[in-house]
């Protein structure tokens, strides 16, 4: 009887895994099947034309790359600061837990609220209007927990003997940070950032009314009133108008490009993560 139950349970778990993988495979398959025919060199290098029914998504791709690069520049130094505070400077376990809890809370804030916050503070209060910088800052703040937690994990898994050896030689805490902790945990920062950026690239809500428009923007020249085009917003707008078969193909094509970007970032992160784990176990 127990054997039967065991076997049954094994089957159920297998089915769950199959279902999860199946959904992913179906989604990716559908997007590729419908979108791949639309993707071409011209699609990637041409501007949008005929309100999205023709032309390409060059400046949407550029805009998304600008947004996630800014997000990276915003989140990386903040993540380093918070992670060092959490892992090195905070002495009490309660303080460390509280800071970590705060990060998880930040991670749970709905992305639309980031958008609202940015709209109130940057667009209205600072009077930037729609700006790529607002979008980059908001996305950077949004992925801050992801990047920081990855870095914290890496720092806390550093062999204690390294820290003790460096401190035992009379290095100050600051010198230990620069010569031991940061060089040896930069991998965590990179993987965390890649995973975070993969998420940021697909986010629509934070940039919806703060940073991106549908058409008419190229490379921003300043900060005020300098929106960019972006891939997710492009999909968002075109999808509402996809009765037109010409537009439909473009939507799927854009989806393929976005999927490629996100998948690419995640794929780079994966082997890096594995390699770092290996180093940590053998170091």
């Amino acid at each position: 009887m127990r054997k039967v139950f065991d076997l049954g349970f094994k089957w159920v778990t297998g089915l769950c895994a199959l279902l999860a993988c199946g959904v992913l495979a179906l989604m990716v398959g559908a997007i590729l099947f419908r979108g791949l025919p639309a993707v071409s060199w011209h699609f990637l290098t041409e501007q949008i034309r005929l309100v999205g029914a023709d032309g390409g998504i060059f400046y949407n791709l550029v805009g998304t790359l600008i947004l996630i690069t800014t997000a990276l520049i915003v989140s990386a130094p903040l993540a380093v600061g918070v992670a060092l505070l959490q892992g090195i400077y905070l002495r009490s376990a309660a303080g460390r837990r509280r800071l970590l809890l705060l990060l998880y809370l930040l991670n749970g804030v709905p992305s639309l609220l980031f958008g609202l916050f940015g709209f109130i503070v940057f667009v209205k209060f600072l009077g930037w209007g729609k700006s790529w910088l607002t979008g980059g800052i908001l996305l950077g703040l949004m992925i801050l927990p992801t990047v920081t937690v990855a870095l914290i994990e890496r720092i806390s898994s550093l062999p204690r003997r390294y820290l003790e050896a460096a401190a035992g030689l009379g290095l100050t805490t600051e010198q230990v940070i620069w010569s031991v902790i940061l060089p040896q945990s930069v991998g965590g920062l990179i993987t965390g950032a890649l995973l975070g950026l993969a998420r940021a690239a697909g986010e629509t809500a934070p940039i919806l009314f703060t940073a991106t428009i549908f058409a008419g923007a190229t490379v921003p020249a300043g900060i005020r009133e300098s929106p960019v085009l972006s891939l997710p917003y492009h999909i968002f707008v075109l999808a509402q108008d996809s009765f037109d078969p010409a537009v439909g193909t473009k939507v799927w094509g854009t989806a393929v490009v976005l999927l490629g970007l996100v998948g690419g970032l995640s794929l780079i992160a994966l082997p890096l993560r594995l390699r770092i784990h290996e180093e940590a176990n053998h170091g």
């Binding site: 062999p159 050896a165 035992g168 009379g170 031991v180 040896q184």
Partner: peptide, 16 residues
């Protein structure tokens, strides 16, 4: 103080 009082551990901790 630690610069004047050195320490050697059981397990060597060489840096990469």
């Amino acid at each position: 103080l630690r610069a004047r009082i050195g320490i050697l551990f059981q397990q060597p901790a060489v840096f990469p």
